[in-house]
């Protein structure tokens, strides 16, 4: 079981790490989509089947498409989709910040006495999740629906409206 977890971790970390370094935005985005698939595999490994497929459906199917459309709708300077890199000071500080956070979190994880329940993966049937969603968490479900609707409307207004098109030559 731990071998499976190690393979999933390798997939997630390698794809995210390479995506961090690539100049080409489209390749970066596609690698990040691979990371999302890896995270879905992690959910599947942990027994949260429904969440895993929701992750694939939402991230692999919807969010990735929105991101790729955005990549294609904006122009990234003369070099097509290659990104002009940030100043090197920022890259160094980003790596330092990331490393510091990683170190702090890893230390916290290592030092905290956790008592994980041993045993087989729990199973959350869809029916059970649905009952919980519609009874105990109905208010949160409604709030999530409202947020999604407002976000959709806001996204359409922002992307479609927004004053006259400024045309510039190629």
């Amino acid at each position: 079981m731990n071998a499976v977890l190690a393979a999933i971790a390798l997939l997630i970390l390698a794809s995210a790490g390479i995506a961090l370094t690539l100049r080409n935005i489209v390749r970066s985005v596609i690698l990040l989509v691979v990371t999302w698939f890896g995270i879905a595999a992690f959910y599947l490994w942990a027994g949260a089947e429904f969440v895993a497929f929701a992750q694939v459906l939402v991230y692999g199917g919807a969010v990735s498409m929105v991101v790729l459309f955005a990549v294609l709708l904006v122009r990234h300077g003369k070099a097509g989709v290659a990104e002009t890199p940030a100043p090197s000071g920022r890259i160094v500080s980003a790596l330092l910040a990331g490393g510091a956070i990683a170190g702090a979190l890893a230390g916290a994880v290592a030092l905290t006495p956790l008592a994980p329940a041993a045993g087989p993966a729990p199973f959350a049937p869809v029916r059970h999740i649905g009952v919980l969603l519609l009874n105990t968490h109905a208010a949160s479900l409604l709030a999530a629906g409202a947020i999604l609707t407002v976000a959709l409307l806001g996204g359409v207004v922002l992307a479609a409206g927004g004053g006259p098109e400024k045309e510039d030559g190629p």
């Binding site: 489209v26 989509v33 089947e49 497929f53 694939v56 199917g61 990735s64 790729l68 869809v126």
Partner: peptide, 24 residues
Amino acid sequence: MDSGVLYFFAAGASSELAVFMAGW
């Protein structure tokens, strides 16, 4: 699978990515 229908449509939705990759 308990959520097999969701799995089916998740696999179908992922194929959009391949269409983009082919075009790009």
